[in-house]
């Protein structure tokens, strides 16, 4: 009963996932496309939850839906995209697109079908034992066995941040900026000058 229920859930969410993915590439409005992508992320998070990898599922929602797609939405909303002009290049780029799609299909088939024949994954999904924490297991592997790969990835990401900031930070000449430390540290003596003067007398 429970297995049947899970199977039904899997197919429901898988259909929604594919529908949302189609929506991303078929919708005319770019903001709708981004929202379809958000839906697709949610559906894949649910699929991950069904195979009991709750850490990855929640991090997918937290990082991609909560941060990356918000910034994406920002960019798309502020661009004024002319759909007709973008459509113009469709026939020109179609062969390239199909070539890349074919390559990806080939890779997926390679991974799922050819390798799957030898792997034990075909034997079905075994539920994890009670009290098993996905997060702990992941952390234990990430910080011991794969610690160098993890650190290298972190350094590459840091490099990307620094590079992005140095590319976009320009000092425009004549730009007036506030120095907040100075503003906070200001004292009365810096701003107000008390002047003692004799009262003027009529001549």
């Amino acid at each position: 009963m429970a297995i049947l229920f899970q199977t039904i859930l899997f197919y429901c969410f898988a259909v929604f996932l594919i529908g949302a993915a189609l929506g991303v590439i078929l919708s005319r409005n770019p903001v709708h496309a981004v929202m379809f992508l958000v839906l697709a992320f949610f559906q894949s998070a649910v699929l991950w939850l069904l195979i009991e990898v709750e850490f990855l599922a929640l991090v997918l929602v937290l990082v991609y839906v909560g941060a990356v797609m918000v910034l994406f939405l920002f960019v798309v909303m502020m661009l004024d995209i002319d759909v007709e002009q973008v459509k113009g290049g469709l026939t020109r780029y179609a062969p390239l697109g199909f070539a890349i799609a074919a390559l990806m299909v080939f890779e997926l088939v390679q991974v799922i079908w050819v390798r799957g024949r030898f792997a034990s994954a075909a034997e079905g999904f075994v539920p994890l034992p009670e009290g098993y924490s996905n997060t702990e297991a992941l952390g234990a592997v990430l910080y011991t066995e794969h610690v160098y790969a993890f650190e290298i990835a972190a350094v590459i990401l840091l490099l990307a941040i620094v590079a992005a900031i140095t590319l976009t930070m320009r000092k425009r000449p004549g730009l007036k900026l506030q120095n907040i430390a100075q503003q906070v540290a200001v004292k009365r003596e810096d701003r107000v000058r008390l002047v003692k003067m004799e009262s003027e007398k009529p001549e």
Binding site: V31, V61, L62, G66
Partner: peptide
């Protein structure tokens, strides 16, 4: 198990209402 992550994930999703409403 991951209740704290769940809370963080959901509170970060709430921003969509504001952004989409404004747009």
């Amino acid at each position: 198990n991951a209740g704290l992550l769940y809370v963080l994930a959901l509170t970060s999703v709430g921003v969509y209402g504001v952004i989409l409403g404004g747009w």
